[in-house]
Design a protein around this nucleic acid. Structure first.
Lengths: 74, 74
DNA sequence: TTACCATGTCAAGCAAGCCTGACATAACTG
DNA sequence: CAGTTATGTCAGGCTTGCTTGACATGGTAA
């Protein structure tokens, strides 16, 4: 899951710590999401998008589907 | 986190099992998300919204922010 | 230099998301 | 009646998201 958090944060000149404070999460959580270490929860994704005044789809970008996905008899 | 999965599923006349198969997750996962037992991962939320041809914001609706959220010195 | 700030990273622990397997109920169909 | 489908629910287990605390590095300021 790619995202534009680093850019959106830079546009506002916010540190990871400042963003974490606004979101009510730890700095490490912001860092991990920003660097793609793991995906945020849906709730946190909503909070981030709302804080940046964007839609989730304009902040987060899922990778292509994993080949373990099913698609039989649709 | 409220959602419109049940309605979107009913509009297409899909069972929970059928939806789960399309998404590549278990029926219980669909059931739990649909009934608000817990939130889906961001990836699963994307997959659901995409499958229904909707935006995440038009499928999932976060509750009001919890009062444990911070908001100091913004 | 010392001090501070921003960022990256690690460890240990807890909680939430998702899994399989199982069981129950209701509705429908043969 | 028996059999199937859809849904709801539980238990046990695994993985991941998030926590606090700690440490390292690079940049910048006094």
């Amino acid at each position: 899951m790619n995202n534009r958090i680093k850019v959106l944060r830079a546009e506002r000149d916010w540190s990871q710590q400042a963003l974490a404070d606004k979101l009510g999460v730890s700095r490490q959580a912001v860092n991990a999401v920003e660097r793609g270490k793991h995906d945020p929860s849906l709730q946190l994704a909503f909070d981030m998008a709302t804080l940046f005044g964007q839609r989730i789809e304009d902040v987060f970008f899922p990778e292509k589907k994993s080949d373990t996905d099913n698609n039989e008899e649709n």
